[in-house]
Write a protein that binds this DNA or RNA. Structure first.
Lengths: 358, 358
DNA sequence: CCGCCATGCAGAAACGTGTCTTTCCGAAGC
DNA sequence: GCTTCGGAAAGACACGTTTCTGCATGGCGG
């Protein structure tokens, strides 16, 4: 049987369009992609025939020929033993959502992939580039990707001289320092920290910033750490922190659920917030606007980060890069609510200060 | 230049492996895929050479040849004007996470795609199948996908005779009826509903189940609806519901943030929970375990749904289907906490030394 | 001793597209 | 009048893999 009649079942190919329009394959390709020198009459004719046949170019064939798939990987490193922490917290959900929207707007789609170095999964999909969330130092997946010539942009400043194309991150040190200053301004004398025992960049930078701040103001560090992937462990660690003999009068929690964990622990110990205990936690959840009391949160602006990461990555893919790594720092946002304001609203006080930090 | 020496830059191809191993292309392909009849010596030799060269088969070429890409689409329909509601609520995050894990375990990856019928995005990626979350009646994207022979499995029972391969859903009617019975058992005399004004299946089924229950027990329906995509509107609607002259003494909120919305509204009206107002909301967030008071939540088991959807879809793709649509109902889980139990567990605060709750 | 089958492997045809090169043809220039 | 030039479209190849077909060899039964 001839090749033009053999494909009765299945989708229409470019050959079918060419035959139906009475032109060659080249003309069809050029007409649909706007590439060659064709009169407008031919262009519209071919397009009309293609539409009538319901023709959709094969993504696989196009990818094979052009080398561009229009797919970006989105990976998340694992915390501890958990196999997969995608959208473990609201941060990831928001960031992934923004990244997906930004990619879609430029004609790309996102593929969710694990950060493990399972070859079979990674090699089964043709990637134009990859977004890596919080890569570990010397991440083998990242090095292998760049060795294959795939651009990698990371959310989180990479450590260990990772050869990424670029990165986007918050200034975690400045955020923690500003937040601690805010608590001190509100009257905190001893600020505690609820942190993780993992080695990821966010946890490490935030913790060292806390230690530096303590050193600067001459306060003994008071902190508890726990495996961040275990939600129950957070509640226990919050309890431990408030059970210490050197109980802090203000606490910053690094992870999303810490706000409710600390509120619950404070209730168990009969501590009033904010009268007896000032509270701030890092979270993207709007639920903290409606808790009792509302909790001051530090937002890492995941939407801006997700958008920026994708823009940098696509710029690099499409050859708009400047040759050197592109680095971008997104400012954080401290959303001040009742839990970190010592003065009760009943007493007449000076109007609340403008939220413009240093 | 010959074809074997021309590709110096770029990844190693199967030809390079064949040349380096001193065998033919066929032998390399068979050895790596475990297909042909080869002695184990040749197999291991080829594999060793391929590893040494860092050979990764081209996903695009394999997809073109075999017709299988190993990619599954994951789409979310839009609510109202919002362009993209992926992981708008914790439900989507959990469901997407479970679906991703389940797909990965069977060698597939998930591509996040918008539910709009933008051709250019959909046709730029070769899909083996698609998961559609809560499709609208007669969804054009779904019909076009099945017309192209791509299996579609939906999260949420499809309406409008949508030709999906299968679907997974909760028994929303039974869940709402059981939950309302639970509230009535706890002493509720007039149960209100906080619902959405969208036409998606979840909202519609839950609301009609509520109305049926009211009819059965002879209670006048008391409900407020609002656009579920707008977080501020939820707080306003919660306020409206509690401001009514026929104020309910128990409320069920259909959406994730309704719990804190209703708690805040109750505080504004001086209503104690659960003494004056019983509360249940549908949510997957663990934050409700630590609110004041903890809120009873209805979990739709998104992890089980995400896993089941992917299993059904991959079974259909790999030809394990039975010919008829596969339908699966996942039971819901009512997590009973203090907000829906009229008796207060204790009037004094329990000693702080035992962090093990309940 | 001949034919046959099982084994081990190579050659080559696809998969469907993009694009380089070539061909054709009419019109303009010397 | 012949060449050249440029526009329009066709031919052919390549992308890298899978897989069908087929060739050679050696062991075995008849």
């Amino acid at each position: 049987m001839s090749r033009s009649t053999g494909r009765r079942l299945g989708r229409a190919g470019i050959r079918d369009v060419a035959a139906a329009a009475g032109v060659s394959i080249t003309t069809v390709s050029d007409a649909l992609n706007g590439k060659g020198r064709l009169p407008d009459a031919t262009r519209s004719h071919v397009r009309e025939v293609a539409d009538r046949l319901g023709y959709r170019p094969s993504a696989a064939a196009r990818t094979l020929r052009t080398g561009k798939s229009g797919l970006l990987g989105l990976t998340v490193t694992t915390y501890g033993d958990e196999p997969f922490t995608f959208t473990e917290f609201a941060y990831f959900a928001e960031m992934a959502r923004a990244a997906t929207s930004a990619a879609l707007a430029r004609g790309y789609a996102l593929v969710i992939l694990p950060a493990t170095s399972r070859h079979d999964v990674w090699s089964n999909v043709a990637l134009d580039g990859t977004v890596v969330i919080d890569p570990a130092d010397g991440d083998p997946v990242v090095t292998e990707l760049v060795r294959h010539g795939i651009p990698v942009v990371s959310d989180g400043r990479p450590g260990g001289a990772l050869p990424v194309t670029g990165w986007v991150d918050n200034d975690h040190e400045a955020a923690v320092l500003g937040l601690l200053d805010h608590l001190a301004d509100a009257g905190a004398r001893r600020i505690g920290l609820l942190t993780g025992n993992t080695t990821d960049t966010y946890t490490r930078l935030s913790t060292t910033a806390y230690l530096h701040w303590c050193e600067r103001v001459g306060q003994d560090p008071v902190y508890e750490s726990y495996p961040a992937h275990d939600p129950c462990a957070g509640a226990v660690a919050a309890d431990r922190l408030l059970a210490r003999p050197d109980r802090p009068d203000a606490v910053y929690g690094l992870f999303d659920p810490n706000g409710t964990d600390l509120l619950a622990a404070a209730r168990r110990y009969g501590l009033r917030v904010p009268e007896d205990l000032l509270l701030v936690c890092c979270s993207e959840s709007t639920l903290y606007a409606a808790t009792e009391p509302p909790v001051t949160t530090l937002s890492l602006k995941p939407r801006r980060i997700g958008t920026a990461v994708v823009q940098i990555l696509i710029d690099a893919i499409e050859g708009l890069d400047t040759g050197r790594p592109i680095e971008q720092v997104i400012p954080t946002d401290l959303i001040i609510r009742a839990s970190s304001q010592r003065r009760s609203p009943r007493t007449t006080v000076s109007p609340p200060r403008a939220p413009t930090g240093d």
